[in-house]
Structure formats: C-alpha cells, structure tokens
Simulated assay, not measured.
Amino acid sequence: MTFGGLTSRAERGRLIDKLLEIDRVFSLALILIAGAGALMMFSIAGSSWEPWAANHLTRFGVAFVLMVALAVIDLRVWAAVAYPLYALGLILLIAVEVVGDVRMGAQRWLDLGPLGSFQPSEIMKLGLVLALGRFYHGLSADRARLSWYLLIPVAIIAAPTLLVAHQPDLGTAMLLALTGLAVVVLAGLSWRVIFAGAGLALAALPPFILFGLHDYQRQRIMTFLNPESDPSGSGYHILQSKIALGSGGLMGKGYGLGSQSQLNFLPEKQTDFIFATLAEEFGFLGCMAVLLLYCAVIFTSLRTASVAHSHFGRLTVAGVTSTFALYVLINGAMVMGMAPVVGVPMPLLSYGGSVMLTVMIGFGLVQAVRVHRYDEVTGSKSSLI
C-alpha cells in the first residue's frame, strides 16, 4: 500500500515536472494574441461579448488546456501516430471528393450529423508535418540531400495538396505545399535542387495561372494587381482593408472608434480582415505590438527545435512553426493588398474554431518536444521509412 502510494506520488511529481517545462514566454504570447483578438471582436460587435468574443475566449481556453495536456505526451507516441494520422487525413480528403458538403461553390466539408461538420484539410496540416518528420528521422543526411528517396516526400506533399486544391481551397493548398517544402529544405535538401526547383516553379507559374486555376481564382489575382478596376465588386475587400489600414495612422482612431469596422464597410471583419480592424483602432503601433507577439511565438518555437536531440522533434517543430508563420505572412500580405485574397485567417487573432484547434494541437506537439527535448525517438530506418 505504501509502495503504491509512493509510486503514485512519484508519478504525480514527474507529471508536475513536465508541466513546469512548458515555455512560459511562449504560453504568455499565445494568451496575449488570443486576448487581443477577443478585444477586437468585443469592439466590432458594439461592445458586446456576443456573438464572437465570448466564443473566441471559450474556444481558446479549451484549446490551451488541450495544448498543455498534449505537451506531456512522449515523442515516441507522436512518432507512432504520424503515419496513421496522415493516412486518416488522406482518406477523409478523398471522402470529401465523394460525399463532401458543397458550400459557396466549394466542396471542403464532411457532415457529421449532430456533431456538425469539419474540414479534413485541418487534420492534414498536422498529419503532413508528422509524416515528413518521421520519414526524415530514419533517413541519412546523404539521402536527404539528394537521392531517389526525394520522390517519397514529394508524393507525401503532393497528394493532399492536389486534393485540397481540387476542392477548391487554394489558400490551404498553398499552406500545405509551402509547409512541406520547408520541412524538406530543413531536412537537408541540396541547394542545387532548391534553386532548380525555384526556377521551374517560376517558369510554370504563368501557365498554371492561365490553365490550372478556376475562373474566380484568376479573378482574385487580377483584382490583386488592379483592385481599383472594380471597386464595388471584386476589388471591394482589398480597397476597404487598405482604407482601414491607412486611416489608423500611427496611434489609431481609438478603441471602438473604427468607422470601417463599426459601420460594416470592412468585410469579414472578425475573421480574415481582423488585422485591418486592429490597424484602424490601434494604428501602426498596435499592429507592431501584435506582430512582436507573433515573432515571440515563432522565435521560442524555433529555439525549441534547436535544442531538441531527436531529428523527428526538430523537423516537426520546424514544420508546425512554418505553418504558423505562413498563416501570419499570408494574412498580413492579404490585408495590405500585397497578396490575393485567399481566405487565410490570422491565427488566434481571427474568429474561428477549426484553425485555432489545429494551431493549438500543433503547439501541443511543439511543447512536447520541449518537455522531452533530451529524449531520442528510437527505431530502425527500415521501421520508420
């Protein structure tokens, strides 16, 4: 009885020790970003917690607890679920093609009846990173640099990217492709291949735009190049976003005083264009403060990757961080008129449960790598490839 009690206390002590290893700066930055998003939603709802701010905070609270719970999971468990999670995501993406719900001209959702609907592409954002991390964990540096083995990660990346692009969801397809590319490059891909690939991508871009995109996607690119050509139609989103950004100036108009958002000139003010709302009310300084918080999250994540002993841990953290950074870069460029509108939200700042859940599960993996940074993910090459 005493022995069992001592064992139980020892296990609780180890669990507490693991929880204390979670990065406090990282966690505080996440809380501040989500809090800033809730403040903006409270403002644009006319100083009301409904319909966005309260839900946003509740979802973040649940997701934060989930992140902490996932942080104590051993890296060997993460490695074990890597391929199954990727396979599940791929099967669900194929199911979307067959029985998926069609909304606003896109077939991206699976209906779960009373449980609601969800986008399988969210599962794939994490499954892709885990699968690539596990593959490269068992690969030698020479084979990762340049060999026929490169065809395997190319296939791992291409399959979900093409399925998501066909839905069509160009924003998520871009995220998957760029995240996968980041992991492959960081795994040690030869610079000759990188430069050759970049050249081929640039050469293929014009024909891809002409023949590979849907009409509305080409229209988005033309609108991005010249939004003034249709100010009340396809160019409306970008123009109103630019007005909100510019009118905020250095210090902003003040909390709750943004005319573009308060008077509903700014579309999707609580989701895709919440950063423009922030700029109007808090100005350049407010935007820089939030961007510094994003930088803190990215920096601390990369620091975790740098101290991890396992190759699997380093690459998966790099992949999760790349996805997060791409969210910030694409959304920031989108609201400033420097990129086409592709429906990519600002993570944790924008309203939306699916993206928040995906991001926080990914950060659970990041913190698991930090907590178990001295652990190795064992396994022979034949068992991991």
Rank of each mutant, 00 (worst) to 15 (best):
P206F: 11
P206H: 15
P206Q: 08
P207E: 03
P207V: 13
F208Y: 10
F208K: 04
I209A: 02
L210V: 12
L210M: 07
F211A: 08
F211S: 03
F211E: 12
F211N: 11
F211D: 09
G212M: 03
L213C: 04
H214N: 06
H214M: 15
D215R: 15
Y216H: 00
Q217F: 02
Q217S: 04
Q217R: 13
R218N: 09
R218M: 10
R218L: 01
Q219Y: 07
Q219M: 08
Q219P: 03
R220P: 04
R220G: 11
I221K: 05
I221C: 00
I221W: 06
I221L: 02
M222Y: 14
M222R: 13
M222N: 04
F224D: 00
L225N: 07
N226H: 03
N226D: 14
N226Q: 14
P227S: 03
P227T: 01
E228P: 15
S229R: 15
S229T: 04
S229L: 08
S229W: 01
S229E: 06
D230T: 02
D230P: 05
P231C: 05
P231G: 11
P231H: 11
S232L: 15
G233N: 07
G233W: 06
S234Y: 15
G235N: 08
G235V: 07
Y236I: 05
Y236S: 09
Y236A: 08
I238G: 05
I238T: 13
L239W: 01
L239Y: 02
Q240I: 06
Q240V: 06
Q240N: 14
S241F: 00
S241G: 04
K242N: 10
A244D: 01
A244W: 04
A244E: 08
A244S: 11
L245D: 02
L245S: 00
L245I: 00
S247F: 07
G248H: 04
G248T: 13
G248R: 05
G249H: 12
L250G: 02
L250R: 11
L250S: 11
L250Q: 01
K253M: 03
K253C: 10
G254K: 05
Y255Q: 13
G256Q: 01
G256C: 01
G256T: 10
L257R: 14
L257I: 08
L257F: 15
G258F: 10
G258C: 13
G258I: 10
Q260M: 12
Q260G: 12
Q260L: 11
Q260E: 15
Q260F: 12
Q262A: 14
Q262I: 15
Q262M: 13
